[in-house]
């Protein structure tokens, strides 16, 4: 046994020397460092997992509430954007109400057209300006395309307009080319009729009828209607069926004109 132990001592001393002066030490060091790194990482993950879990839950709640707020904001902004776009379009439309300055002799009030049930039934229209903005009975209502009608009732904040297709509406017009004068009246079904046309009057389908400017209500040479058909009535005169040049279904902004006595 003694010999065995002596050999063991010699072997262990040899092993120590071999370990000290060979690559084994470096290899062991690198293995130890690697294992320490992995252990530290694992320990860090285990330690921080509850905190991450809590953070994740807390973060989720925060994100959910932020999300709801952002959604609200997005809706608000998209609404504002729509309004802004509409306003831009409205501004463009308003700017185009007076092309070439043909209404410059009149004081102009921009109004928004409200097509309510009256439009469909009574050939009337509501506008959003009243006596507060200077609207008055008898004022002409026009846009860039032509004549729309005339104000017949004024409230504080709104006015009622008789359209040119209303049977109670009459307007003196002239043929755009020949300048022959005639009286146009609304026929009540979206059309305008001109009666008592002399046979010698050169009027045919496609002609544009314009204002005369002699009534101090409408400016001169503003389109009113377009002739659709000329026909003979059993009274010795011709009649012309016309349609308005203004598309009442597309009305948005209109101009209320008051004649300036300059």
């Amino acid at each position: 046994m003694r010999k065995f132990k002596v050999w063991l001592i010699l072997i262990s001393v040899g092993l120590i020397a071999f370990d000290k002066y060979s690559f084994i030490s470096n290899f062991r060091d690198s293995v130890v460092i690697w294992m320490q790194k992995q252990t530290s990482l694992l320990f860090y993950r285990i330690e921080s997992y509850p905190r991450l879990l809590l953070l994740h839950t807390t973060q989720q709640q925060e994100l959910a509430s932020q999300n709801a707020q952002l959604k609200k904001q997005v809706e608000e902004y998209s609404l504002l954007l729509k309004q802004s776009k509409n306003q831009t379009q409205d501004a463009t439309a308003v700017n185009q109400l007076n092309p070439n300055g043909i209404y410059d002799d009149f004081s102009q009030i921009v109004a928004k057209a409200i097509l309510d049930v009256n439009f469909f039934v009574n050939n009337q229209m509501l506008i959003d300006v009243g006596s507060n903005k200077g609207s008055q009975i008898g004022a002409a209502v026009v846009n860039r395309e032509g004549v729309i009608g005339q104000v017949y009732n004024v409230n504080a904040n709104s006015s009622q307009v008789t359209l040119i297709t209303n049977p109670e509406f009459k307007i003196y017009v002239e043929q755009s080319v020949t300048k022959s004068k005639m009286l146009a009246q609304g026929s009540g079904n979206g059309n305008i009729i001109v009666r008592y046309l002399d046979k010698n009057d050169k009027i045919q389908a496609g002609d544009i009828l314009e204002t005369t400017g002699l009534d101090d209500v409408y400016p001169a040479r503003v389109p009113v209607a377009k002739v659709v058909k000329v026909f003979y009535e059993n009274n010795g005169f011709n009649s012309a069926l016309c349609v308005p040049v203004v598309d009442f279904h597309q009305l948005q902004y209109v101009l209320v004109l008051k004649y300036d006595n300059k």
């Binding site: 132990k5 063991l8 001592i9 072997i11 262990s12 001393v13 040899g14 092993l15 120590i16 071999f18 370990d19 000290k20 084994i24 030490s25 062991r28 130890v32």
Partner: peptide
């Protein structure tokens, strides 16, 4: 190995102790 001591340290020590 696992204690990161020099190979043979424990063997030498335990051999001496066994006496």
């Amino acid at each position: 190995l696992f204690g990161h001591w020099y190979l043979g340290s424990h063997l030498l020590a335990i051999t001496i102790l066994s006496v």
